Amino acid sequence: MKKTKLNLEKVPHELLFILHVIKEESTTAWFDQYEQFLKKVNWKAFLKLAKHHRLFPLLYQQLKQMDESCVPDYVLRYLKAIYQQNTFQMMHLTAEMNLLNQQFLKKNIRTIFLKGPVLGQELYGDISLRTSCDLDVLIPLENLGDAEALLIQLGYEKDDYIETILGDWTWRHHHVTYFHREKGVKCELHWRLNPGPSFEPGFNDLWNRKKKSSLLDGSVYLLGKEDLFFFLATHGARHGWSRLRWLVDIHRLLGQEVNWHQAVHLFTKYHFQRIGGQALLLSENLLNSETPVEVKALLDKKSQQLAQQAVFYMQYMVNLHTDPVPQSVSDYHGKHLFSLMSYQQKLLYMLSCMFPFPEDAETLPLPKFLHFLYVPLRPFLWAWRKSTKPLFVKVFKG
Rank of each mutant, 00 (worst) to 15 (best):
Q102M: 14
L206M: 15
H190Y: 04
L38N: 08
L100D: 03
L381N: 09
W207R: 07
D160N: 14
R238N: 15
N98T: 13
K296W: 15
L373H: 08
Q309P: 07
P57C: 00
W260N: 01
Q103V: 14
R54M: 07
H175A: 04
R192G: 05
F380T: 00
L166G: 12
A147M: 11
A147Y: 06
D67E: 02
E148S: 10
D146T: 11
S213V: 01
V220H: 09
Q309N: 11
N7E: 12
V264A: 08
S289R: 06
K269S: 05
Y83G: 00
L15Q: 06
R243W: 10
R245L: 13
V258P: 09
C133M: 06
Y343S: 14
P292D: 02
G236H: 04
W207S: 07
E68K: 00
V118P: 08
F392S: 14
L370H: 10
M354W: 10
K335C: 02
M97I: 03
D323I: 03
F229N: 05
D136V: 03
L370R: 15
L76V: 03
L15Y: 01
F104S: 10
W30Y: 02
R209P: 05
A149E: 10
K3G: 03
F31W: 00
R245K: 15
P326R: 04
H235D: 00
F88I: 12
Y221P: 05
Y161S: 15
C187R: 02
N288S: 01
L381C: 10
H52E: 06
Y178T: 08
H20W: 11
E294D: 14
P292F: 07
N285K: 01
K158W: 01
T4E: 12
M341D: 10
P358F: 10
G120L: 11
L47I: 11
R385L: 01
A297I: 11
A29I: 13
E122Q: 12
I139Y: 03
P201F: 03
Y60E: 12
P356A: 12
Q327T: 13
K335D: 11
A383T: 07
Q256T: 09
E68A: 00
H175T: 00
G184V: 03
F46W: 02
L100Q: 06
N7A: 09
G145F: 10
V311E: 08
A147Q: 08
E24P: 09
G240N: 11
K210N: 10
P324G: 08
G167C: 03
W384M: 12
P356I: 10
P117Y: 13
Q102E: 15
L6C: 06
Q315C: 04
L351T: 04
I127D: 04
G277Y: 08
Q84W: 12
K211Y: 01
T27P: 00
A147G: 10
K39V: 09
H333D: 00
